[in-house]
Design a protein around this nucleic acid. Structure first.
Lengths: 361, 361
DNA sequence: TATTAGCAATCCCCCCGTATGAGTGCTAAA
DNA sequence: TTTAGCACTCATACGGGGGGATTGCTAATA
């Protein structure tokens, strides 16, 4: 990930030319030549001079000529320098921000917020948006309900963090009656409502040891059922949400060909690689940008990922961002990702504060 | 949808040649000429004779020459005749059927079954699979739970049809205490468990009129909350599930171009058109096939949809199928769709029988 | 009448050569 | 250090000429 060697000193002029070249290339996708650059820039230099500079930049690995008589194109390294220091982030216009703000109403459920954010990213950037589902290290049990199915199967309904509902089917060691299950649920709801789920199992076992004399059927049932309750469900939900995959089709022009695109789609359905990339952003502070080959995945060549963590009450709980061609309008995309992350953080935190309101009452 | 005019009488030989031509074209995608056909078929005819027949078929609208010196290609009408009567359905080999059967275990939840079926269709056909979510005209309430949130919002958890859990947030007219909600839930669970949800509201109102003297707070709360309970949620879940969209990329070869593909993707995200097509299959008996332009949607040109309804306990509750290029191996696809529909029906029906088992106990 | 062989005509596709134009690198002058 | 000039490279577009495949037609054949 880190660059092979430090950026060699690059004088102001070279940097400026690189910036203009990258911007131009991002604009219209054609290799940029010295003549164009001479007209584009304010420096009033002749194409010949610019050619010298460009030759330098190419030598240092920032640029690349597709062929002898074409203009030049930024390399991954060139993009890296560009996004790291050269680019001027355009703040998003207020109307768009307002629009986003309106869509991300905190009275949606978590699922709704996440998919709305994903659609938002996709719509505004015209790229592919994706949002990791928020994972909290600290999940509070609010309410639990057991319903007997046939044989030794039990439907468990968990209400977590005030509003999230999860349900799964567990297989118990023996058949429990509806009354037993009801009692077990009542016990859990009375004693453990508000507790952290991750510690619930150990707490239960402790309680069982302390009141060894009271170790009756009720407790047994409770422990049996509750300990199965938090096993990972088989068909666990997807870990992130995507929108706008169709925008990836823009990649299909020119030499990149349809095959790479197919690989990319395959990656998405497999989703392991993507998740790994997203995970790397979890610990980072602000916006993270992965440029093409840097990611290490061959399929991601020609692609970039712009991502930002989002948080609930100050704690980072997830990552969102967009995937698109390396040649994407970073100035816009960065601020869009940034704003969306902040808005989602706000929306989720407001939901969280329901909890406080509730306890105050 | 119906054909413009009846198929004019087509002698055996013409039909056979059309069949062979379509099969061949499906195999390798190249226009088929008279010489190839002469070798392919068993009829021992000279290319010249076959040319006469082909000219006839073309005149009747079954075939089409891309240009003067190319072979011939089936038209939508040609495909129609082919799938309606000519094609010989290949039964699926047992190992594949077994494999499908193993995947569609009835102990998955409905969501799981549907997405597994979708993946199955996509994997086995290498096309895009889609499954409409089962909609039952008859939804039984098993259990309901109310949890107060802040202000006048209530989290409602519904258990329907024994295993399906739905949850949503409703806004009540006034703030209810936890105790009130608990009572209301108890009342509903005791009196209306096992009832049809669609009739629940009217039944409630009736009950309220009968016991007018008992119209206490409890009843008021119950009616207030319960009547809001079944309003359609805003972010309603998607109505069908797709898998294998990446297989659509095969369409992107040659003249069809990337633009049509993009339109197609847009269609999928909008999903209205698709749903309309699927709906048409709901009332049909067996396998339905839509061929390209027949569907009436321009974007669906060059595409076909092979669909079959699936059922629970004999009643049709949904449709599944695959979408792919008009030039697809119908013989295989048809039997795959057929088998998948039957297997899904079986799996869903077995789940349904949990209900009976439960009541027996 | 149905089938077949023969044949000219058509048209796509591939290849090749050429012209064009954009852009480069080099060199020498300012 | 910058610039102008120039030869060179190479992708792209254009056009013409085979080669190949297939057709439709006509006339002969069974």
């Amino acid at each position: 990930m880190s660059l092979q060697n430090n950026h060699p000193p690059l004088n102001e002029r070279s940097q400026h030319l690189l910036k203009v070249l990258v911007e131009r290339y991002i604009r219209d996708g054609q290799p940029v030549g010295s003549r164009t650059l001479a007209e584009e820039t304010v420096l009033n230099l002749s194409p010949a001079t610019i050619r010298h500079v460009l030759a330098d930049l190419e030598e240092h690995g920032y640029l690349l000529s597709p062929h002898t008589s074409a203009g030049r194109v930024p390399t991954a390294r060139g993009y890296r320098l560009f996004v790291d220091g050269l680019l001027t982030v355009k703040p998003l216009d207020d109307s768009t921000v307002k629009q986003c703000q309106q869509q991300l109403k905190p009275d949606l459920n978590v699922q709704g917020l996440v998919s709305t954010a994903s659609n938002l990213l996709s719509d505004v950037t015209r790229l592919t948006g994706l949002v990791m589902l928020p994972r909290r290290d600290h999940v509070t049990l609010r309410h639990v309900e057991f319903l007997p199915l046939n044989d030794n199967r039990v439907l468990v309904i968990l209400v977590l963090n005030e509003q999230e509902v999860q349900n799964r089917i567990i297989y118990t060691d023996r058949v429990y009656s509806a009354a037993e299950l009801q009692q077990a649920a009542n016990y859990l709801n009375e004693v453990y409502a508000g507790c952290d789920v991750s510690q619930l199992r150990t707490q239960l076992l402790q309680a069982m040891q302390n009141d060894r004399e009271h170790l009756n059927n009720l407790m047994q049932a409770t422990v049996d059922v509750a300990s199965k309750m938090f096993d990972k469900p088989k068909n666990s939900a997807p870990d992130y949400v995507m929108a706008g995959q169709e925008n990836l089709l823009d990649l299909a022009d020119g030499a990149t060909g349809i095959n790479r695109l197919r690989q990319l789609f395959a990656t998405f359905t497999q989703k392991r690689d993507i998740l790994y990339l997203l995970d790397q952003c979890l610990n980072a502070e602000g916006i993270q940008i992965f440029i093409g080959e840097e990611a290490g995945y061959e399929v991601m060549d020609e692609c970039s990922l712009v991502a930002a963590p989002y948080s609930v009450e100050g704690k980072v709980v997830g990552v969102l961002g967009v995937i698109g061609p390396t040649r994407m309008p970073y100035e816009r995309v960065i601020s869009i990702v940034d704003v969306t992350a902040k808005l989602l953080s706000v929306a989720l935190s407001q939901k969280g504060s329901d909890l406080d309101l509730l306890h105050d009452k």
